[in-house]
């Protein structure tokens, strides 16, 4: 099919990340959890970070939060958040401008404190208001996440809420910090389909209402299709393709992105063999020569195994491949 050229947009860049690498020392030698990831996210956008396990998507989120494991070396050519250098101040911005919404809301909430108490703990560190004002603020935030009876909820404990409601409380807490950039790490994986869809709709609405920006870490193409404006595909700790979410989903250029979509069970007719990707991701302890995907790529040429692929640009759709037009 014909892939339309996508025009570049000129939105204000909130996060600019170039050449991020995270290396963790281990007895078996340094583990390259993130090799080189470029990520540019505009204000007010939901950006999908797509990849399979071991691609470095969660570690990228941790680097943005300043939560990499002890001993890890984080380096980047550019590591800017709203003009602030994150390489020195990621830990400072965490809980002020950047907040995390994790996969398991039950683990993110303290089981022995009421929702009200936990909201207040966050608000108290961020605002000088009186207790009554903070309470009103907490109720307003809970209501803003679509929780019914927010007032009554203040005295409830996390275990009294369903998974979907717990995730809404976690989102309310993230809002309470005043953060304008949320890192959502598989926020719907632990939830039932319908509940997950509601949580995604809420995030979409918060972006529209409050001007939030969200990095959506996920392996689920349905989530990308449902809420993401743009997306970046990761493979073996490298960003291999970035562009508008719809372009990536319908017209992937990097052979890995194309193969990933083709492997989905609804990509083939009922009962037909699926286009599985043979082989394994390269071990994170070994350096990569040439293109990381070359050993598994159906279109690989000799060149691919030795020379790093050039970045191809088409409007604001970028991918790294030796093939000029990308995936066949």
């Amino acid at each position: 099919m014909r892939c339309a050229t996508v025009k570049g947009t000129s939105a204000v860049t909130l996060l600019d990340l170039q050449g991020l690498s995270v290396t963790i020392p281990s007895p078996a030698g340094p583990v390259r959890a993130v090799r080189s990831i470029d990520l540019r996210i505009a204000k007010g956008e939901i950006h999908g970070l797509i990849g399979e396990s071991g691609c470095g998507k969660t570690m990228t989120g941790m680097a943005l939060l300043g939560l990499t494991p002890a001993g890890a070396q984080v380096a980047a050519r550019v590591f800017q958040f709203d003009g602030i250098d994150l390489s020195t101040s990621a830990a400072v911005l965490r809980g002020r401008r950047i907040a995390l919404i994790s996969q398991d809301p039950a683990a993110a909430l303290n089981p022995v404190l009421t929702i009200g108490r936990q909201m207040d703990n966050v608000l108290r560190t961020h605002s000088p208001h009186s207790e009554a004002d903070r309470r009103a603020g907490a109720v307003a935030l809970l209501a803003a996440t679509g929780l019914p009876d927010a007032d009554k909820l203040m005295t409830s404990y996390p275990h009294q809420l369903s998974g979907g409601m717990q995730q809404r409380v976690v989102i309310a807490q993230a809002l309470a910090t005043g953060a304008d950039f949320l890192i959502a790490d598989e926020p719907t994986t632990a939830l039932d389909v319908a509940v997950g869809a509601q949580v995604l709709a809420l995030l979409r609405q918060l972006v529209a209402d409050r001007g939030l920006t969200i990095l959506m870490i996920t392996h689920d193409m349905d989530v990308v299709a449902a809420v993401c404006d743009r997306a970046t595909v990761l493979y073996a700790g490298l960003s291999v393709e970035t562009g508008p979410a719809s372009a990536i989903l319908t017209c992937p250029r990097h052979p890995y992105a194309a193969a990933l979509l083709a492997a989905l069970p609804d990509a083939a007719p009922h009962g037909q063999r699926l286009a599985a990707i043979d082989g394994q991701i390269p071990p994170s302890t070994k350096p990569i020569s040439g293109c990381a995907f070359a050993p598994r790529c159906p279109a690989a040429m000799t060149l691919c195994h030795t020379v790093s692929p050039p970045v191809r640009v088409q409007g604001d759709h970028l991918w790294a491949c030796h093939l000029a037009e990308g995936a066949p």
């Binding site: 193409m221 990308v224 319908t250 992937p252 995936a327």
Partner: peptide, 17 residues
Amino acid sequence: QELMGFGRRAQKSAPTS
């Protein structure tokens, strides 16, 4: 129908290349 999910249904008309 809910279980069938959300999202990509809208784009199902456009086949993957």
